Simulated scan of single mutants.
Amino acid sequence: DSGTRQFRVGEWHTIEQHIRLNTPGLSDGVIEVTLDGELALIEQGVRFRDTESLRLNKLVFASYYGGGDAMLQPVNNGRVVIDDVVISTHPINHD
Rank of each mutant, 00 (worst) to 15 (best):
S63C: 04
I31Y: 00
H13S: 09
N22W: 02
G25H: 06
F61E: 11
G3D: 01
N76D: 08
V30E: 01
H18A: 01
D50R: 14
L39G: 10
N76A: 15
R5T: 06
F61D: 13
G78P: 03
E11G: 01
I15R: 05
R55H: 08
D1M: 07
N57D: 05
K58C: 08
T51D: 12
M71A: 13
S53C: 05
N22K: 04
G3F: 01
E11W: 01
G25N: 03
V86E: 07
L54S: 01
V80R: 13
G78T: 08
S63T: 05
V81M: 08
S63K: 02
H94I: 07
A70L: 13
Y65I: 13
G66Q: 12
V86F: 04
V75L: 10
I82V: 11
Q44L: 05
E38V: 10
D69K: 11
I42H: 09
T51E: 11
I31A: 01
L35D: 02
E11Q: 02
R55D: 02
I15V: 15
I42Y: 04
A62P: 14
H13F: 09
W12H: 11
H90N: 11
I87M: 14
V81C: 02
G37I: 03
G67F: 06
S88R: 13
G25I: 04
D36C: 09
D1Q: 07
E43V: 08
S2N: 04
R5I: 06
E16K: 06
F61Y: 13
I87G: 14
Q17D: 03
D83G: 11
E11T: 00
L26G: 02
H94A: 11
G37W: 13
L59C: 04
N76W: 10
L41M: 07
Y64G: 15
T23I: 03
P74A: 15
R20N: 00
V80E: 14
G29F: 01
V81I: 07
